[in-house]
């Protein structure tokens, strides 16, 4: 092998970069921790199936915003609750899941998601 020193340095740099998640996990030490969500303050069911809610709540909130702001359509028929609820992040979502910090932020922080909901909305708890 020619230029053995340089080749080995190059390969070591490659392997260190490729193994970044492994040594980051060893150094950071938080590999098995899952986000723990606070239980809803009231009610048994979410307004839609909770697995579907976990995966698609951003679409729902996006639709709600457009419908409320552009069409003045403020009411949502929930199948799981069998009742009509208000399309409102602050009143409906945060009405049950009382704490943004202990509910929304848990998963969002875990996955570095920065939703822009809070550019306009406020978390009422933060101001009490």
């Amino acid at each position: 092998m020619h230029n053995t020193g340089k080749i080995i340095i190059g390969l070591l740099i490659f392997l260190v970069i490729a193994a970044f998640p492994i040594w980051y996990a060893v150094a950071g030490g938080k590999t098995g921790e899952m986000p723990v969500l606070e239980k809803a303050a009231r009610g048994e069911n979410c307004i839609i199936d909770s697995v579907l809610m976990k995966e698609t709540h951003m679409f729902l909130l996006d639709d709600w915003r457009d419908e409320v702001v552009r069409e003045d359509d403020r009411w949502y028929r929930s199948m799981t609750l069998d009742s009509t609820i208000e399309k409102s992040l602050t009143r409906t979502c945060l009405g049950c899941h009382a704490s943004k910090a202990n509910f929304c932020d848990r998963c969002h922080d875990y996955l570095a998601v920065v939703p822009y909901c809070w550019d306009c909305h406020v978390d009422p708890k933060e101001f009490e």
Binding site: Y24, A25, G28, K30
Partner: peptide, 12 residues
């Protein structure tokens, strides 16, 4: 890397 590192690295 937001999936491969906890907490997500600074650049993400």
């Amino acid at each position: 890397f937001r999936f491969f590192a906890e907490p997500a690295p600074f650049f993400v």
